[in-house]
Amino acid sequence: MLSARALKVVGFTLITAAKAMSSEAATGPCELQVSGNQRKLQRLLAVPGCVLNRENDLLLLRPDTDGESCSEAKKSDNKHVVFFHGDIQNFQEEMLLQPDAAQWASWSLEQVALVLGRRFPHRFIWVVRASRIYLHKFSCYQNFVESSMFGAPEHGPYSADCGAFCQLRALLSHGMDCAKLPNPLQPAGGADPGFSLILVGFSKGCVVLNQLVYELRGARSDPQMSTFVKRISDMFWLDGGHPGGSETWVTDKEALKELGASGVSVHAHVTPYEVCDPMRAWVGQEHQHFIKTLEEFGSCPSNKLHFEDEPASIENHFRVILEF
């Protein structure tokens, strides 16, 4: 989560690639050829979710299959990463138009997709744009979890018709169909045996991962959803934060017990910006509780504090995307 003071800090200079999408992007899917990179970013706008009016824009970066044999390339056919961004992050041209956001344009959705492409070169990278970005700053994932206008979540139990799992599966299904990918997911029902999924949340985007954890018990017991859930191999929490006064990290023992039993590999990467802020001491306390409780249930979450010898800063908060 970005605080008001953080939005005033001078940020990184703009790095290369993906400077702007054309104005044609406003009317439908488009592709961006990235300078010096043969991989293409494809923008998919207003992709339908699980119910009417639950649409999200998506960015898709296809796997890097250059130099691979046909059999090696086929292994990437149905392996995916889904990323949920934080506050201030948006499409590059949108950020460049906003004074508070322009200084952080090196962390635009396009740039992050390219970073993730290097981190996961043999997977399809999906970046989910929040359905609402209030005041061009505060990302709100209302389509996944009930939220305030500033994006503070109100977590709830599993819903087979309109919950976070339902929205995620529907977005992937419709996005894969729109992008004409092989073996698209079905909007309802199981998943192809070769399908695998990694989920990554950064800052505010971690509220989606938290909601999925709260829904796990119901989703795993639902025959129409359980197969999809089993295809999730890893979940990465990257310096989670939001403007609410609690539940930055999941602390409910029953929910964490379910996560530990699910077989999903859990990864937590944090920085002093979130977990060492004396004005928001609960964030660090909840993070510790999250890790400790999973360990008590026999899970082995990976946990790393980055930049611990450096002052807490918004720069390092973003840099965790490069370092995890």
Rank of each mutant, 00 (worst) to 15 (best):
R231G: 01
V208T: 08
L238G: 00
I232F: 04
M235S: 05
A219N: 12
K230F: 00
K230Q: 09
G218I: 01
G244Y: 13
L216H: 02
L216R: 10
L216V: 06
T227W: 04
V250S: 08
V200Q: 02
D222C: 03
P223R: 06
F236Y: 15
G218W: 08
H242V: 12
S196N: 14
S233D: 02
E247G: 03
D234R: 06
F236V: 00
V207N: 10
G201Y: 03
D252H: 07
S203W: 03
K253T: 14
L212W: 14
L216S: 09
F228K: 00
G194D: 12
E215K: 02
G244N: 10
S233N: 01
L216A: 03
Q224V: 11
R220Q: 14
V200F: 08
V200L: 07
V250N: 05
G194A: 07
T248E: 06
D222T: 02
G205N: 08
G205C: 12
E215S: 11
Q211W: 15
V213Q: 01
S196T: 14
G241S: 07
F202G: 02
P243L: 12
S221H: 09
V229T: 04
G205S: 11
M235Q: 01
G240T: 04
L238C: 06
C206K: 06
E215C: 10
V200T: 07
T227F: 03
I232L: 03
G218D: 05
R220I: 04
S226G: 06
L209S: 12
P223C: 13
S203V: 10
T227P: 00
G205H: 08
V208Y: 02
S233E: 15
S226K: 08
K253I: 13
D222F: 10
N210V: 05
L216Q: 11
H242W: 07
V200S: 07
V200P: 06
K204Q: 15
K204D: 04
K253E: 12
K253L: 04
K204N: 13
G245W: 09
C206I: 03
N210S: 15
K204T: 09
G205A: 11
K253F: 04
M235C: 12
